[in-house]
């Protein structure tokens, strides 16, 4: 692992020159200083932002017999404004992990950058070892819990899915407090209320979903979400990860049909 991102290396001796940096002979007294935003106090202590700004809505993940599927629409809202309408929120991380992110999109992008760096690290060790979905999920838990403990959380709610080396599928959810769980279906945002019951209803008691069932359920759920959640739109992408392939498909469109609208009365 890379030990040190802050500068290009440790000083040659304490208070000494840092290789690759400029050495100021008179300024030797530098000690570790916390970033100013962490030590600047307001009249009533420090206040941090407590809400997200640009947001992605629900993410839905379903585990099936030989892999996982994660879907999210392509909208990133600015408050109630449908600000960015063609943004992918399901990412391929490596050949066995996909990740769907909801919540503050800047925070998602930020954590995605860190994850991508880890994938490059995997590559340069050149040992055919890659990160597994379970490991990524665990790492996210530690990062997010650490942030919330410092009262500076990342406002995200992510779904991690993939397959491990033995081909066993993994699907889990990590939220902004570092809470995490695994299940055959996980959802964030409104999908927790709207999609989760739909999927659970159709789960055969004695076996996993098949890929076809999962795919059909995803289409159905994205449609319901589009109709019922105002922060959703009709276009969505689906990440599919099995042992044999891992990719983000789409964008697809839900089957819009507004003929029933004429019959709705009383609003």
């Amino acid at each position: 692992m890379l030990n040190n991102y802050q500068s290009s290396g440790y000083p040659l001796w304490s208070n000494g020159p840092t290789p690759g940096g400029f050495y100021n002979f008179t300024g030797g007294q530098q000690t570790h200083k916390l970033p100013s935003e962490l030590v600047t106090e307001g009249p009533y202590g420090t206040k941090r932002n407590t809400s997200s700004i640009t947001t992605g809505s629900s993410v839905l993940g379903i585990r099936f017999d030989e892999g996982v599927m994660i879907a999210a629409d392509t909208l990133v809202s600015y408050g109630s404004l449908a600000r960015y309408q063609d943004i992918h929120r399901v990412f391929k991380i490596n050949n066995n992990i996909i990740l769907g992110g909801s919540g503050d999109f800047a925070d998602i992008q930020s954590i995605k950058r860190n994850i991508d760096q880890k994938m490059i690290e995997d590559q340069y060790y050149d040992d055919q070892i890659t990160m597994k979905p379970k490991e990524l999920s665990s790492w996210l838990t530690r990062v997010l819990y650490g942030r919330r403990s410092r009262m500076n959380p990342l406002y995200i709610d992510v779904v991690v899915g993939g397959v491990d080396k033995q081909g066993v599928p993994f699907l889990g959810n990590v939220d902004l407090r570092g809470r995490a769980y695994e299940d055959y279906v996980v959802a964030t945002g409104f999908a927790r209320h709207l999609a989760l019951p739909l999927v659970r209803e159709r789960k055969p008691a004695d076996r996993d979903f098949t890929a076809q069932e999962a795919s059909d359920l995803i289409r159905k759920c994205m449609e319901v979400l589009y109709y019922r959640d105002t922060r959703n739109m009709s276009k969505y992408t689906v990440g599919v990860c099995t042992t044999s392939n891992c990719l983000v498909e789409g964008p697809y469109n839900v089957n819009e049909n507004w003929t029933f609208a004429a019959n709705i009365k009383g609003y």
């Binding site: 030990n3 060790y125 040992d127 379970k134 665990s138 530690r142």
Partner: peptide, 16 residues
């Protein structure tokens, strides 16, 4: 182990 809930690959540990 704390971060990843898995074992440290030997080659990487030794490199470090």
């Amino acid at each position: 182990k704390h971060s990843y809930e898995s074992i440290y690959p030997i080659s990487r540990l030794i490199t470090n």
